[in-house]
């Protein structure tokens, strides 16, 4: 019994750890990389990392981050060239595991400018809190909860995400809650995720049915507003209560039907009646 409990605990722990690892790219980038690197703002001590995922393989990046000098000493020509280009400044070894580095790469990917159209302004670049109108917010809310159909027939955000926003139908719980997304990711981060989704589930939903720039703009406005009011919003218990009530009513209806049928059901074999 004790052993089983321990196994269950370990399973839950590993699950939690692996799920947390997916969301720590932004923090890790700020703590470990931002001192020497930018995403799209040019070279600092180290190179600009914008769209690094398109220039190097994940495996190579993981090796370089964990120990750049080992890679250089092994004779890797790309590593040697990068080292020479940046005045032979040694990048300190980072005590990060592969999953953590992958989460940083993901963060960089979603915050990088569009590699194909660097001159075209993205919704995030146009976005300004001062220009957010109530109409934008309302439009974004309807896109989020699905009452407005998306131009390219993508799924509504509510399928997987929740936000705490007054009068809003509660969203799904499969993916992360987006109430404070604006603080965590900023306009550029949200815009990047919406237009170039890095998560496989979102690729399934929006890969062939992308959001339009107008829809992204409305969603940015709505998420900005949600974030701004997040301190005043509480998770609604009303929906849970309604769902519970619905389930109890449904079960009672079925029970009544079963009881009605019970009268006409043969309960004993013929010779026992």
């Amino acid at each position: 019994m004790c052993k089983n409990f321990l196994v269950i605990l370990i399973c839950f722990y590993s699950l939690t750890v692996s799920l947390n690892a997916q969301n720590q790219g932004d923090q890790l980038f700020l703590q470990r990389c931002k001192v020497c690197h930018t995403i799209g703002d040019g070279k600092l001590i180290g190179p600009d990392l914008a769209n690094i995922q398109n220039r190097r393989t994940k495996e190579w990046i993981i090796k370089f981050v964990q120990s750049s000098q080992s890679l250089i000493k092994s004779g890797d020509s790309v590593a040697v060239a990068v080292f020479n280009q940046h005045n032979k400044v040694v990048m300190p070894d980072q005590d990060l595991n592969a999953n953590q580095i992958k989460s940083i790469i993901e963060f960089i990917a979603i915050n990088s400018p569009d590699a194909n159209n660097p001159s075209q302004k993205t919704p995030a670049q146009i976005f300004s809190p001062a220009l957010v109108t109530n109409l934008d917010i309302e439009r974004g809310r309807k896109i989020f909860d699905g009452t407005s159909r998306l131009t390219n027939n993508g799924p509504s955000c509510i399928s997987c995400h929740n936000v705490n926003y007054a009068g809003m139908f509660n969203g799904g719980l499969l993916a992360i809650d987006l109430t404070g997304a604006f603080t965590r990711l900023g306009a550029a981060g949200i815009d990047g995720i919406l237009r170039n989704p890095p998560f496989p589930s979102m690729v399934n939903g929006f890969g062939s049915s992308p959001l339009t720039d107008e829809e992204v703009k409305s969603l940015l406005a709505f998420l900005y507003e949600t974030n701004k009011k997040s301190a005043l919003q509480f998770s609604s218990l009303q929906l849970q209560f309604t769902l519970l009530l619905g389930i109890v009513v449904g079960l009672n209806i079925v029970l009544i039907v079963l009881l009605i049928r019970w009268h006409s059901v043969k309960k004993y074999s013929t010779n026992l009646r």
Partner: peptide, 16 residues
């Protein structure tokens, strides 16, 4: 219960 709106995300994640 824990990952609600499965009918929606099934269509996006599991069906493909």
């Amino acid at each position: 219960y824990a990952y609600r709106w499965g009918s929606s995300w099934f269509a996006v994640v599991i069906a493909p």
